[in-house]
Simulated assay, not measured.
Amino acid sequence: MSEYLSVWTLIRASGFLAFYFLTLSLIIGLFSTYSIMKKKKAALLSYHQTSGWYGMLTIIFHIILIWRDQYVPYSLSDLLLPFHANNKPLYSALGTLSFYLFFIVIGSSDFFIKKLGIRKWKKIHLTVIPAWIFMLVHGLAIGTDSSKSWALVIYLTSSSFVILLLFIRIMESIMSKQTPRTKELKR
């Protein structure tokens, strides 16, 4: 197998690709909640779901590749049980926990939203934030390319963008809650 198609290269590429898709899904999800995006909400929701599923499938591919890798051996239990891996157990566990949280969010969104109801679903959906943070820390701490400048730029840029969008979303939520009170006070 060539150097570019080695298991090692595919593990690294699938990790970054999963990070890309799930970051994209998070960003689109945040955009879709903004009041100025109401007319584009249906299209954004479709992109949000699609990128989320691509991210989930890429994580599964990433896990399978790690399981089959001979250089740093992981058993299936190392990959599926948090804190069970011998190699960097904390950071491996964050990857595993991130996978489970993303799985719960995507599964509940696509298969159980009606059974859960919108309130429960929203609470579950918010776990995407810790899932994304766990994924980020996992990639930074255990990824072999994390010390390279191009990887740091990817992590720093995406983190900054997500933080900015979360801040804007929180501010918009606070302002929308204050607006009705302001109207009542003026009466």
Rank of each mutant, 00 (worst) to 15 (best):
H138R: 12
G15L: 00
L136G: 06
R187L: 13
D110F: 05
S77A: 11
S159T: 14
A151N: 02
H138Q: 14
L76F: 11
Y71N: 10
T127M: 08
I174H: 13
F99K: 04
L152I: 12
K120P: 02
L5C: 07
F83W: 05
S2A: 13
G107Y: 02
L65V: 02
A43G: 09
I64H: 11
I60M: 06
S92N: 12
S92R: 08
W121A: 00
G107E: 05
G139M: 01
I163N: 04
F167M: 08
S92V: 02
L152A: 11
V105A: 03
I118M: 11
V72N: 09
I154R: 03
F112S: 04
L166Y: 07
D78T: 02
M1Q: 13
V162I: 10
N87M: 08
S176M: 03
K148H: 08
W67M: 10
F161P: 04
I64L: 13
R187D: 15
H48I: 00
F31P: 05
Q70Y: 15
R187K: 15
I163W: 08
S25N: 13
F161A: 07
S176Q: 09
Y4I: 14
D69E: 12
K114F: 09
W67T: 11
L22P: 06
M135L: 15
L166F: 07
Q70V: 13
Q49M: 07
M135H: 12
V162M: 04
R169A: 01
L76Q: 14
D110V: 05
W8Y: 15
Y91R: 02
F134P: 01
L10A: 08
T9V: 11
K183F: 11
M37Y: 10
L10Q: 10
L152F: 13
A141V: 02
P89L: 06
F61V: 11
S35Y: 10
L22E: 10
L30R: 00
